[in-house]
Design a protein around this nucleic acid. Sequence first.
RNA 1: UGCCCGAUGGUGUAACUGGCAACACGCUUGAUUUUGAUUCAAGAAAGUCCAGGUUCGAGCCCUGGUCGGGCAACCA
Length: 554
Amino acid sequence: MADEKGLNFLEEIVENDLKAGIYKNIITRFPPEPNGYLHMGHAKSICLNFGLALKYGGKTNLRFDDTNPVTEETEYVEGIKNDIKWLGFEWAQELYASDYFEKLYEFAVVLINKGLAYVDDSSSEEIARLKGTPTQAGTDSPYRNRAVEENQRLFSEMRAGKYKDGEKVLRAKVDMAHPNMHMRDPLMYRIKHAHHHRTGDAWCIYPMYDFAHGQSDAIENITHSICTLEFIPHRALYNWFIEKLEIYPSQQYEFARLNMTYTVMSKRKLLQLVNEGHVRGWDDPRMPTLSAVRRRGYTPESIRDFCDKIGVAKRENLIDVGLLEFCVREHLNKIALRRMVVFDPLKVVIINYPEGKSEMLPGENNPEDHDSGNREIPFTNKLYIEQEDFMENPPKKYFRLAPGEMVRLKSAYIIKCEEMIKDDSGKVIELRCSYVPESKSGSDTSGLKVKGTIHWVSIPTAVTAEVRLYDRLFKVENVGDMEGDFKEYLHPNSLQILQNVFAEPSIKSAVGDERFQFLRKGYFTLDQDSSMDKLIFNRTVTLNDMWAKEVKKG
RNA sequence: UGCCCGAUGGUGUAACUGGCAACACGCUUGAUUUUGAUUCAAGAAAGUCCAGGUUCGAGCCCUGGUCGGGCAACCA
């Protein structure tokens, strides 16, 4: 069976349009508002918009939808550009809705001249009241039938700054009884005496989304304007403006936004988590933002793969975060350098290995990539192993270290636990083990077969580091479905910091965005807080752990 | 008492546009393994929201329901 996955509905639309000769090339756009950082939901949209243009021959513009100066900042513009580049996409042009303010103003005048727009002096409360309800028609505003000349004068006075915020608005004259609420004389312009991140103080009137988005699409000759489901009711208005203005007929299509288990995917909620200090910032590795998953160690390849796997459709969805984890494990398994790091140390002394002796043992950097070579791992008679790799009274299926039992030290020797040393409270604080000299990794002539292999670190050369372990941000699967404040469902232990773990010395050369697999522990990458004096690693994702599952089953 | 979307294994997406429901994740079992990782093999799991209709044949078309979601920011 060919693994040609069927086309998604948007690809189908594009293919049909191309086949019908409606377009020679397609042009899409990714239109973020610079009022927050991009998240995984945006990644889906980015992959979709850029992916379509890449697949069918065309281009994608990056257009900032910056029509609301009070929430938008240059900081976000830079962050967004950075995230898109990191994901691996290149936009044809970097554009801003604010580039079109003059043009949009002209469009508004055209509608005024056609008698299709009017200045309304009503308060926002009054406008809301006259709008009616979904089941009840609205009522015409008393200003609805102003003369064209008066509207022209008033609108230009609005622009000139003659009025205060909220004193007047420009509205499209459509139909106050329309069953679609968005068609009941929607606002086109409002007065905001606010500083805009790009146009500065040049304007004191700003277009609404509905009077900016479709027009911007038309100006750029966007063929397929793809947005999320909540804009479906706006489509009628989108088309109305295009028709009345007689501009390029961009077509709007809608798809279902991404939702993931154990997290939230709305800028509003994410901003709240940041502002109220529930996380350390937009790039806190527990966040679903792109800056956060990047910091956490996710690769752009794995995110693109994820976006590909989740598909595109119009029905609401809740994607298992486990799928994202699968994608990143799959990629990291191929590229991560293997290293041994002990998180929770238990001292082991090899009683028959000479005191003071040291040898270097080679360990594969990555068994999945034979070109990756080896690194040298020092071995001595004093080691750390993981506390959890020893049990005084092991259950039957436990095949790690136990009194009298043998285990393989990865890339080194087989050892046998000869003696336990306990403190006054009875806690095991040290193991005395013997090693089998003929069992050396790579030249094992011992003939011994052991069930378990564990990781270890030689104490004299151990390098200490900090490790940050992340768990799901929320403790419930479907946060959006819960009653009350979503913050009540935050997972209290989503971040666990281990200040002092012990790593093999080769870890010291870790740089930048190198990915590591700490054997049997998970995938890690250096955090940006890391320094020469203090190494800090983020756990990107754990390894699959059958044993943990077994233990859980009991 | 409106208008608009949607409904396929646990999750997500397919099904040559009317031809015996497939793929991925997850799950179970087994093999391999110097990571209880990876890899490999096998398997369980939906008869497509319901009821009618058209048809030789319906997940796809028609009708009527049911359920879920959206729509009344000078937000996008």
